[in-house]
């Protein structure tokens, strides 16, 4: 960073608030008021939901739920016994899945799970002191991992983005490693097209020969390589991303490696990001677990 920017950030350290900070007692009082308001709001919500339920039961006839036109044929009530690639069979590298077995949830058939029910969980991630670490701002611009991946990226090239119906995110960390999962549900029938868009953006941004950045501050070099396809769910892709960058004034000796796997089950797509420096076999296993979670919905 230039000396001028350094000095300007330094100047912010001396900035004072426009008025005195509230005394601690006032902050605590504000916290207690929030608690009371939240409790009141929760109570009102229960009343409203209960009232709506009675209203529905009293005035409406239940309607037979239409089947979800998913390309995989999966439904909320019948999770597949296997979520491996089609045709079903052992994974390409023979690695057993580390994920959970899809089990009946006891959920009524007509009530598909919300995405938050289908997130990866710590027990899916294998050994390690995994702690939840949900991302707080996972997206910039378009709400998927692949936004602005390369200069050729243009939102308009990916029509499925406009058909994202639900989004959820989760994340975990252990030691210096972490992973994040972005879950998308697309509008009925849009899952396959969403995955086609994933393939398109990866293909478009894949580069095979790049030159490293020549000076601090010059654009970082990003190389994408597709490492595997269709190893989980209805379809899947595993992408290895290498970034060459400067650490201060010195070109980093090793590139920063991020693995990203996307897997589709029906109209749901999980994108799992592993950083830094994860093993690809491990990434496949966790991706299969993510697929099983999706299939269990």
């Amino acid at each position: 960073m230039s000396d001028r920017l350094d000095a300007m950030f330094e100047s912010l350290h001396g900035e004072r608030a426009p008025g005195p900070f509230a005394p601690p007692e006032a902050v605590r009082r504000r916290g207690r008021q929030r608690t009371r308001h939240q409790a009141m709001a929760a109570g009102l919500a229960v009343v409203a939901v209960t009232g709506a339920g009675f209203g529905w039961a009293g005035h409406l006839r239940p309607v037979d739920p239409a089947p979800i036109p998913a390309a995989s044929g999966t439904t909320a009530s019948t999770p597949p016994a296997s979520v491996g690639p089609s045709p079903s069979g052992p994974a390409r590298d023979g690695t057993p899945s580390a994920g959970p077995r899809p089990t009946g949830t006891g959920r009524p058939d007509a009530t598909p799970a919300t995405l938050s029910d289908l997130r990866l969980r710590a027990e899916d991630l294998g050994p390690g002191a995994w702690r939840p670490r949900p991302p707080t701002e996972p997206f910039s611009g378009d709400t998927w991992r692949w936004a602005d991946l390369c200069p050729l990226y243009r939102s308009a090239d990916y029509p499925s983005l406009a058909h994202q119906a639900e989004l959820d995110v989760t994340g975990f960390t252990t030691g210096k490693s972490y992973l994040y999962e972005h879950l998308h549900r697309y509008a009925d029938g849009w899952g396959p097209r969403a995955f086609a868009d994933v393939r398109r953006v990866v293909d478009r941004c894949t580069t095979t020969a790049t030159t490293p950045p020549t000076a601090p501050g010059s654009p970082e070099t990003r190389t994408l390589v597709v490492r595997d396809r269709d190893f989980a769910g209805d379809e899947a892709v595993l992408v290895r991303e290498e970034q060459t960058y400067y650490e201060g004034e010195v070109l980093a000796r090793d590139p920063l490696v991020t693995l990203t796997a996307a897997v589709r089950v029906g109209d749901r797509v999980a994108t799992v990001i592993f950083s830094p420096d994860w093993d690809e076999a491990y990434a496949r296993e966790v991706t299969r677990a993510a697929a099983q979670r999706l299939a269990a919905g």
Partner: peptide
């Protein structure tokens, strides 16, 4: 990266 939930890259 940890605090904002994005990869280091």
């Amino acid at each position: 990266a940890r605090e904002t939930g994005v990869p280091e890259g």
